[in-house]
Protein backbone atom coordinates (compact mmCIF):
# COMPACT_ATOMS: atom_id res chain seq x y z
CA UNK A 1 0.00 0.00 0.00
CA UNK A 2 1.44 3.38 -0.93
CA UNK A 3 0.36 6.92 -1.52
CA UNK A 4 0.59 8.09 -5.10
CA UNK A 5 0.10 11.59 -6.48
CA UNK A 6 -1.69 14.15 -4.34
CA UNK A 7 -4.15 12.09 -2.33
CA UNK A 8 -4.62 8.60 -3.76
CA UNK A 9 -3.69 5.33 -2.05
CA UNK A 10 -2.73 2.38 -4.23
CA UNK A 11 -3.52 -1.06 -2.79
CA UNK A 12 -0.92 -3.81 -2.76
CA UNK A 13 -2.91 -6.79 -1.60
CA UNK A 14 -6.19 -5.76 -3.20
CA UNK A 15 -8.96 -6.27 -0.64
CA UNK A 16 -11.84 -8.14 -2.19
CA UNK A 17 -15.49 -7.27 -1.78
CA UNK A 18 -16.65 -10.75 -0.91
CA UNK A 19 -20.34 -10.16 -0.29
CA UNK A 20 -23.03 -7.47 -0.32
CA UNK A 21 -26.61 -7.05 0.87
CA UNK A 22 -29.27 -4.39 0.71
CA UNK A 23 -32.70 -3.72 2.12
CA UNK A 24 -34.92 -0.93 0.80
CA UNK A 25 -38.20 0.75 1.68
CA UNK A 26 -41.51 0.66 -0.21
CA UNK A 27 -40.88 3.57 -2.56
CA UNK A 28 -37.52 2.17 -3.67
CA UNK A 29 -39.29 -1.19 -4.19
CA UNK A 30 -41.43 0.50 -6.82
CA UNK A 31 -38.36 1.84 -8.58
CA UNK A 32 -36.51 0.37 -11.56
CA UNK A 33 -33.87 -1.45 -9.45
CA UNK A 34 -36.28 -3.32 -7.14
CA UNK A 35 -35.32 -6.81 -8.33
CA UNK A 36 -31.68 -6.33 -7.33
CA UNK A 37 -32.31 -5.74 -3.64
CA UNK A 38 -32.27 -8.55 -1.08
CA UNK A 39 -35.40 -7.39 0.63
CA UNK A 40 -38.10 -4.85 -0.19
CA UNK A 41 -40.13 -3.58 2.75
CA UNK A 42 -43.84 -2.98 2.55
CA UNK A 43 -44.03 -0.21 5.09
CA UNK A 44 -41.64 2.36 6.44
CA UNK A 45 -42.13 1.38 10.08
CA UNK A 46 -41.31 -2.31 9.59
CA UNK A 47 -43.28 -3.11 12.74
CA UNK A 48 -41.44 -0.54 14.84
CA UNK A 49 -42.93 2.41 16.68
CA UNK A 50 -40.66 5.20 15.45
CA UNK A 51 -38.83 6.08 12.24
CA UNK A 52 -35.54 5.95 14.12
CA UNK A 53 -36.18 2.41 15.38
CA UNK A 54 -37.21 1.34 11.90
CA UNK A 55 -33.95 2.69 10.44
CA UNK A 56 -31.93 0.87 13.13
CA UNK A 57 -33.75 -2.34 12.31
CA UNK A 58 -33.04 -1.90 8.60
CA UNK A 59 -29.28 -1.49 9.10
CA UNK A 60 -29.19 -4.35 11.64
CA UNK A 61 -31.01 -6.74 9.33
CA UNK A 62 -28.87 -5.69 6.36
CA UNK A 63 -25.69 -6.48 8.28
CA UNK A 64 -27.18 -9.80 9.44
CA UNK A 65 -28.10 -10.60 5.83
CA UNK A 66 -24.65 -9.85 4.46
CA UNK A 67 -23.01 -11.99 7.14
CA UNK A 68 -25.44 -14.86 6.51
CA UNK A 69 -24.90 -14.67 2.73
CA UNK A 70 -21.11 -14.61 3.09
CA UNK A 71 -20.80 -17.87 5.06
CA UNK A 72 -18.29 -16.10 7.27
CA UNK A 73 -18.92 -16.59 10.96
CA UNK A 74 -19.58 -13.26 12.65
CA UNK A 75 -16.82 -14.08 15.13
CA UNK A 76 -14.36 -14.07 12.21
CA UNK A 77 -15.29 -10.51 11.26
CA UNK A 78 -12.70 -8.24 12.79
CA UNK A 79 -14.25 -4.80 12.56
CA UNK A 80 -17.38 -2.96 11.56
CA UNK A 81 -17.46 0.49 9.94
CA UNK A 82 -20.91 2.01 9.73
CA UNK A 83 -22.75 5.30 9.75
CA UNK A 84 -25.95 7.15 8.91
CA UNK A 85 -27.48 10.63 8.82
CA UNK A 86 -29.16 10.95 12.21
CA UNK A 87 -27.58 12.97 15.00
CA UNK A 88 -24.58 11.16 16.50
CA UNK A 89 -25.21 8.25 14.08
CA UNK A 90 -27.80 6.62 16.34
CA UNK A 91 -29.29 4.37 13.66
CA UNK A 92 -26.08 2.44 13.16
CA UNK A 93 -24.89 2.42 16.76
CA UNK A 94 -28.32 1.43 18.11
CA UNK A 95 -28.92 -1.05 15.30
CA UNK A 96 -25.52 -2.69 15.62
CA UNK A 97 -25.13 -2.68 19.41
CA UNK A 98 -25.79 -6.40 19.60
CA UNK A 99 -23.57 -7.68 16.80
CA UNK A 100 -20.49 -8.03 19.03
CA UNK A 101 -18.01 -6.82 16.43
CA UNK A 102 -15.57 -3.97 17.23
CA UNK A 103 -17.32 -0.92 15.85
CA UNK A 104 -16.18 2.32 14.21
CA UNK A 105 -18.93 4.90 13.77
CA UNK A 106 -18.30 6.83 10.56
CA UNK A 107 -19.84 10.12 9.50
CA UNK A 108 -19.44 11.51 6.00
CA UNK A 109 -23.08 12.45 5.39
CA UNK A 110 -24.18 10.68 2.19
CA UNK A 111 -20.56 9.70 1.44
CA UNK A 112 -20.46 7.46 4.55
CA UNK A 113 -20.76 4.20 2.62
CA UNK A 114 -17.66 4.74 0.48
CA UNK A 115 -15.81 6.39 3.35
CA UNK A 116 -16.32 3.15 5.33
CA UNK A 117 -15.12 1.08 2.38
CA UNK A 118 -12.00 3.26 2.03
CA UNK A 119 -11.12 2.86 5.70
CA UNK A 120 -11.80 -0.88 5.62
CA UNK A 121 -9.60 -1.28 2.52
CA UNK A 122 -6.67 0.35 4.30
CA UNK A 123 -7.19 -1.88 7.35
CA UNK A 124 -7.25 -5.03 5.24
CA UNK A 125 -4.43 -4.03 2.92
CA UNK A 126 -2.20 -3.42 5.94
CA UNK A 127 -3.06 -6.85 7.40
CA UNK A 128 -4.80 -5.26 10.38
CA UNK A 129 -7.90 -7.30 9.58
CA UNK A 130 -9.12 -10.23 7.51
CA UNK A 131 -12.80 -9.49 7.23
CA UNK A 132 -14.54 -6.15 7.75
CA UNK A 133 -18.22 -5.36 7.42
CA UNK A 134 -19.21 -1.88 6.17
CA UNK A 135 -22.73 -0.49 6.27
CA UNK A 136 -24.69 2.73 5.86
CA UNK A 137 -28.36 3.57 6.18
CA UNK A 138 -30.83 6.38 5.72
CA UNK A 139 -34.59 6.70 6.09
CA UNK A 140 -36.78 9.23 4.29
CA UNK A 141 -39.02 9.87 7.27
CA UNK A 142 -36.33 10.23 9.95
CA UNK A 143 -34.28 12.46 7.63
CA UNK A 144 -37.26 14.70 6.78
CA UNK A 145 -38.07 15.00 10.47
CA UNK A 146 -34.50 15.92 11.39
CA UNK A 147 -33.50 18.11 8.44
CA UNK A 148 -36.72 19.53 7.03
CA UNK A 149 -40.35 19.57 8.12
CA UNK A 150 -42.87 17.19 9.68
CA UNK A 151 -44.25 14.75 7.12
CA UNK A 152 -47.83 15.97 7.54
CA UNK A 153 -46.97 19.58 6.71
CA UNK A 154 -48.66 20.55 3.45
CA UNK A 155 -45.69 22.16 1.73
CA UNK A 156 -44.42 21.87 -1.84
CA UNK A 157 -41.06 20.36 -2.74
CA UNK A 158 -39.11 22.52 -5.17
CA UNK A 159 -37.95 20.89 -8.44
CA UNK A 160 -34.31 20.88 -7.25
CA UNK A 161 -35.07 18.86 -4.11
CA UNK A 162 -34.00 15.24 -3.70
CA UNK A 163 -35.71 12.28 -2.08
CA UNK A 164 -33.87 10.55 0.78
CA UNK A 165 -33.65 6.82 0.09
CA UNK A 166 -35.04 4.52 2.76
CA UNK A 167 -32.84 1.50 3.21
CA UNK A 168 -29.37 0.25 4.00
CA UNK A 169 -26.49 -1.24 2.07
CA UNK A 170 -23.74 -3.42 3.48
CA UNK A 171 -20.61 -5.12 2.14
CA UNK A 172 -17.94 -7.42 3.54
CA UNK A 173 -14.35 -6.72 2.55
CA UNK A 174 -11.95 -9.62 2.88
CA UNK A 175 -8.21 -10.09 2.50
CA UNK A 176 -8.68 -13.07 0.20
CA UNK A 177 -11.24 -13.87 -2.44
CA UNK A 178 -12.10 -13.75 -6.11
CA UNK A 179 -12.98 -10.11 -6.34
CA UNK A 180 -14.13 -7.62 -7.26
CA UNK A 181 -11.02 -5.96 -5.88
CA UNK A 182 -10.37 -2.54 -4.45
CA UNK A 183 -7.41 -1.10 -6.39
CA UNK A 184 -7.23 2.58 -5.44
CA UNK A 185 -8.92 4.88 -3.00
CA UNK A 186 -9.00 8.66 -3.31
CA UNK A 187 -10.33 10.34 -0.18
CA UNK A 188 -11.72 13.76 -1.04
CA UNK A 189 -11.19 17.27 0.25
CA UNK A 190 -13.99 19.41 1.65
CA UNK A 191 -15.09 21.77 -1.11
CA UNK A 192 -17.52 24.62 -0.47
CA UNK A 193 -18.64 26.79 -3.36
CA UNK A 194 -21.05 28.82 -1.23
CA UNK A 195 -24.34 27.11 -2.10
CA UNK A 196 -26.82 27.71 0.75
CA UNK A 197 -29.99 26.16 -0.63
CA UNK A 198 -30.63 22.94 1.32
CA UNK A 199 -33.10 22.03 -1.42
CA UNK A 200 -30.33 21.92 -3.99
CA UNK A 201 -27.85 19.42 -2.54
CA UNK A 202 -26.70 18.19 -5.94
CA UNK A 203 -25.34 21.62 -6.79
CA UNK A 204 -23.65 21.90 -3.39
CA UNK A 205 -21.86 18.53 -3.75
CA UNK A 206 -20.96 18.56 -7.46
CA UNK A 207 -17.76 20.67 -7.01
CA UNK A 208 -16.47 18.14 -4.42
CA UNK A 209 -17.19 15.23 -6.76
CA UNK A 210 -15.44 17.10 -9.56
CA UNK A 211 -12.37 17.81 -7.40
CA UNK A 212 -12.07 14.18 -6.26
CA UNK A 213 -12.67 12.77 -9.76
CA UNK A 214 -10.07 14.99 -11.43
CA UNK A 215 -7.52 14.35 -8.66
CA UNK A 216 -8.10 10.61 -8.93
CA UNK A 217 -7.59 10.63 -12.69
CA UNK A 218 -4.42 12.74 -12.39
CA UNK A 219 -2.99 10.69 -9.50
CA UNK A 220 -3.57 7.35 -11.25
CA UNK A 221 -2.75 8.69 -14.68
CA UNK A 222 -6.00 7.27 -16.01
CA UNK A 223 -8.52 8.65 -18.45
CA UNK A 224 -12.27 8.52 -17.83
CA UNK A 225 -12.50 6.01 -20.70
CA UNK A 226 -10.39 3.55 -18.65
CA UNK A 227 -13.48 2.89 -16.55
CA UNK A 228 -16.55 1.03 -17.74
CA UNK A 229 -18.60 3.13 -15.37
CA UNK A 230 -18.06 6.20 -13.19
CA UNK A 231 -20.90 6.22 -10.69
CA UNK A 232 -21.49 9.14 -8.34
CA UNK A 233 -23.42 8.86 -5.09
CA UNK A 234 -26.36 11.18 -4.95
CA UNK A 235 -25.83 14.21 -7.13
CA UNK A 236 -29.23 13.65 -8.73
CA UNK A 237 -30.15 15.06 -12.11
CA UNK A 238 -29.02 18.64 -11.53
CA UNK A 239 -25.78 17.75 -9.76
CA UNK A 240 -24.86 15.17 -12.43
CA UNK A 241 -25.44 17.70 -15.13
CA UNK A 242 -23.21 20.17 -13.31
CA UNK A 243 -20.45 17.55 -12.76
CA UNK A 244 -20.38 16.65 -16.45
CA UNK A 245 -20.16 20.34 -17.33
CA UNK A 246 -17.37 20.98 -14.83
CA UNK A 247 -15.35 18.04 -16.16
CA UNK A 248 -15.44 19.56 -19.63
CA UNK A 249 -13.70 22.68 -18.30
CA UNK A 250 -10.72 20.42 -17.50
CA UNK A 251 -10.94 18.64 -20.82
CA UNK A 252 -12.51 15.42 -19.52
CA UNK A 253 -15.60 14.06 -21.17
CA UNK A 254 -17.29 11.61 -18.79
CA UNK A 255 -20.75 11.62 -20.39
CA UNK A 256 -20.43 8.03 -21.67
CA UNK A 257 -19.23 6.49 -18.42
CA UNK A 258 -21.01 8.62 -15.87
CA UNK A 259 -24.24 7.84 -14.09
CA UNK A 260 -25.59 8.66 -10.67
CA UNK A 261 -27.22 6.45 -8.03
CA UNK A 262 -29.79 9.16 -7.36
CA UNK A 263 -30.88 8.92 -10.99
CA UNK A 264 -30.79 5.11 -11.10
CA UNK A 265 -32.85 4.27 -8.04
CA UNK A 266 -36.11 6.07 -8.87
CA UNK A 267 -38.19 6.55 -11.97
CA UNK A 268 -38.25 10.34 -12.20
CA UNK A 269 -41.48 10.62 -14.16
CA UNK A 270 -43.57 7.98 -12.41
CA UNK A 271 -42.31 8.48 -8.86
CA UNK A 272 -42.20 12.28 -8.75
CA UNK A 273 -38.85 12.41 -7.01
CA UNK A 274 -37.80 15.71 -8.64
CA UNK A 275 -33.99 15.75 -8.87
CA UNK A 276 -33.55 12.08 -7.80
CA UNK A 277 -32.56 10.11 -4.72
CA UNK A 278 -30.14 11.03 -1.94
CA UNK A 279 -29.01 9.82 1.48
CA UNK A 280 -26.41 7.32 2.70
CA UNK A 281 -28.56 4.45 1.50
CA UNK A 282 -28.71 5.82 -2.05
CA UNK A 283 -25.21 4.73 -3.07
CA UNK A 284 -25.27 2.03 -0.36
CA UNK A 285 -28.20 0.12 -1.81
CA UNK A 286 -27.46 0.82 -5.48
CA UNK A 287 -23.89 -0.47 -5.10
CA UNK A 288 -24.73 -3.41 -2.82
CA UNK A 289 -27.72 -4.44 -4.90
CA UNK A 290 -27.30 -3.39 -8.51
CA UNK A 291 -23.66 -2.51 -9.25
CA UNK A 292 -22.18 -5.40 -7.26
CA UNK A 293 -24.24 -7.83 -9.29
CA UNK A 294 -23.23 -6.19 -12.58
CA UNK A 295 -19.59 -6.61 -11.56
CA UNK A 296 -20.17 -10.26 -10.72
CA UNK A 297 -21.76 -10.84 -14.10
CA UNK A 298 -18.73 -9.06 -15.66
CA UNK A 299 -21.03 -6.49 -17.25
CA UNK A 300 -18.89 -3.89 -15.53
CA UNK A 301 -15.24 -4.73 -14.96
CA UNK A 302 -13.77 -1.39 -13.97
CA UNK A 303 -15.88 0.78 -11.72
CA UNK A 304 -15.07 4.13 -10.16
CA UNK A 305 -17.47 4.74 -7.30
CA UNK A 306 -17.64 8.31 -6.00
CA UNK A 307 -19.85 8.92 -2.99
CA UNK A 308 -20.82 12.52 -2.33
CA UNK A 309 -21.90 14.09 0.94
CA UNK A 310 -23.29 17.42 2.09
CA UNK A 311 -21.70 18.18 5.46
CA UNK A 312 -24.44 20.31 6.99
CA UNK A 313 -27.05 19.99 9.69
CA UNK A 314 -30.28 21.80 10.45
CA UNK A 315 -28.57 24.26 12.80
CA UNK A 316 -25.98 25.29 10.22
CA UNK A 317 -28.60 25.84 7.55
CA UNK A 318 -30.80 27.86 9.91
CA UNK A 319 -27.80 30.00 10.74
CA UNK A 320 -27.40 30.71 7.05
CA UNK A 321 -24.14 28.83 6.55
CA UNK A 322 -23.24 27.49 3.14
CA UNK A 323 -23.11 23.73 2.52
CA UNK A 324 -19.63 22.15 2.38
CA UNK A 325 -19.47 19.15 0.08
CA UNK A 326 -17.22 16.10 0.18
CA UNK A 327 -16.63 13.16 -2.16
CA UNK A 328 -14.64 9.96 -1.70
CA UNK A 329 -13.67 7.78 -4.64
CA UNK A 330 -12.92 4.07 -4.67
CA UNK A 331 -11.76 2.19 -7.74
CA UNK A 332 -13.17 -1.35 -7.91
CA UNK A 333 -11.99 -3.76 -10.60
CA UNK A 334 -12.55 -7.39 -11.48
CA UNK A 335 -8.83 -7.93 -12.22
CA UNK A 336 -5.93 -7.11 -9.92
CA UNK A 337 -3.84 -4.42 -11.58
Amino acid sequence: MKKIGKQTIQMENFPTISQSASIVGPKESEGPLAKYFDRCLEDEFWGEKTWEKAESKIIKETVNTVIAKSNISSTDIDFCFAGDLLNQCISSSFGLREINIPFFGVFGACSTFVESMCLASVFIDSHAAKHIVCAASSHFCSAEKQFRFPLELGNQRPPTSQWTVTGAGSVILSSEGNGPFVTYITPGKIVDMGIKDANNMGAAMAPAAFDTLVTHLQDTNRKPSYYDAIITGDLGYIGSDILEDLCKTKGYNINHQHNDCGKLIFDKEKQDTHSGGSGCACIGTVFSGYLYQLMHEKKINKLLLIATGALMNSTSSQQGESIPGIAHAISIENCKI
Binding site: T160, M193, I195, N200, I242, S322
Partner: peptide, 15 residues
Protein backbone atom coordinates in the same frame (compact mmCIF):
# COMPACT_ATOMS: atom_id res chain seq x y z
CA UNK B 1 -18.65 31.25 -5.42
CA UNK B 2 -20.52 34.03 -7.24
CA UNK B 3 -19.93 32.62 -10.72
CA UNK B 4 -20.81 29.16 -9.43
CA UNK B 5 -24.01 30.35 -7.83
CA UNK B 6 -25.06 32.15 -11.04
CA UNK B 7 -24.24 29.03 -13.01
CA UNK B 8 -26.27 26.83 -10.64
CA UNK B 9 -29.25 29.18 -10.90
CA UNK B 10 -29.13 28.79 -14.66
CA UNK B 11 -28.91 25.00 -14.39
CA UNK B 12 -31.70 24.54 -11.85
CA UNK B 13 -35.22 24.25 -13.19
CA UNK B 14 -37.70 26.83 -11.95
CA UNK B 15 -40.98 25.97 -10.31
Amino acid sequence: PKTYSDYVDKKSPNS
